[in-house]
């Protein structure tokens, strides 16, 4: 489904991979991994089977009359398209705000020595550890006071802020690896700092910025709690929240449609993750996040 092609390449590069080890060890490791992998796939089995079963329940079974009826049933503007458009606006908006703020902030942190840098970076690192769920109660209170409830832009700015510390951290690390020489040449020619940032640094760190963008986008796309609390009207709710429309008012749950909808809603992030993982390896993304 996702990064099938990434594995072998990575292991070739890996210095420790004791080329497979001894046959018996290797067989045992393969068997143990297969069992673990099966355990991880099992809970997803229901999702896949129920989505093609018009009479699905919470039981996992081969559909008696497999069909795409569930998918056909959810392919309506109200059920699928509007929520997905909302999800997209929310996630893309969050990622754009996030990236713009992060690139601007990372530039002086990466390029100029200042007494302000270290404390700020540590504060940012500290900020990554605040539990976002805990802030939701006060954020709701704040949004009520400022009359920002049910406002898409306000929700976007809030979501961008929750991932901003991580984004600044990653962006600064990626920017550190862009060599200074080219910029110095531009400075000599009289270009201002921001002009060099836009014309030289940003193009050179496209790949890293792509990773940050997708990273933030995936998190925003999958986020349920924040829009659940902050967006009230159905017309603005993203797919993560609108999915509850399959839990009928009379207690009847449309399991098959729920599964079909869940799959359609998950596909974009699976694709995006594959793009990041294949392009550069998620180890690359992690290194941006974790190194100093």
């Amino acid at each position: 489904m996702t990064s099938l092609r990434r594995g072998p390449r990575l292991s070739e590069r890996r210095p420790t991979a004791v080329a497979g080890g001894r046959p018996r060890v290797r067989f045992a490791a393969n068997a143990a991994l297969a069992v673990i992998g099966l355990c991880f796939v099992l809970p997803l089995g229901w999702l896949l089977l129920a989505s093609v079963d018009p009479h699905a329940g919470y039981q996992t079974r081969w559909p008696q009359s497999p069909s795409l009826a569930n998918f056909a049933a959810v392919l309506t503007p109200d059920l699928l398209f509007q929520p997905l458009v909302n999800s997209f606006l929310l996630s893309a908006g969050t990622a754009v705000v996030n990236l713009a703020a992060a690139v601007l902030a990372a530039y002086p942190l990466s390029r100029y020595q200042s007494r302000f840098n270290k404390p700020f970076l540590y504060a940012i690192l500290f900020g990554t550890s605040l539990p976002v769920t805990a802030i939701m109660v006060p954020v709701y209170g704040l949004f009520v006071q400022l009359q920002l409830l049910d406002s898409m832009p306000a929700t976007i700015f809030f979501m961008a802020t929750t991932t901003l510390p991580m984004a600044i951290w990653m962006t600064k690390n990626f920017m550190d690896s862009v060599p200074l020489e080219l910029e110095e040449a531009a400075w000599m020619d009289g270009a201002s700092g921001l002009a060099t940032l836009r014309r030289i640094v940003v193009p050179l760190m496209r790949q890293g910025l792509g990773v940050v963008f997708i990273f933030v986008f995936i998190q925003a796309w999958g986020n349920f709690f924040v829009p659940f609390i902050l967006l009230l009207s159905t017309a603005k709710q993203p797919a993560a929240v609108s999915v509850f429309s399959f839990f009928g008012q009379h207690g009847a749950i449309a399991y098959g449609e729920l599964a079909a909808f869940s799959i359609l809603y998950s596909v974009p992030v699976l694709i995006l993750y594959t793009v990041v993982a294949r392009g550069s390896g998620s180890a690359f993304a992690l290194s941006g996040a974790m190194k100093g």
Binding site: T2, G7, S11, T16, A34, L38, G222
Partner: peptide, 25 residues
């Protein structure tokens, strides 16, 4: 580190899939 590359990448995909899915799903 001990297993074959194909197994590692398949199992890696299965484990990561549970993590990348939207939380509500």
């Amino acid at each position: 580190t001990k297993s074959g590359g194909a197994t590692a990448s398949l199992v890696g995909t299965a484990v990561v899939a549970a993590w990348v899915l939207p939380e509500i799903v």
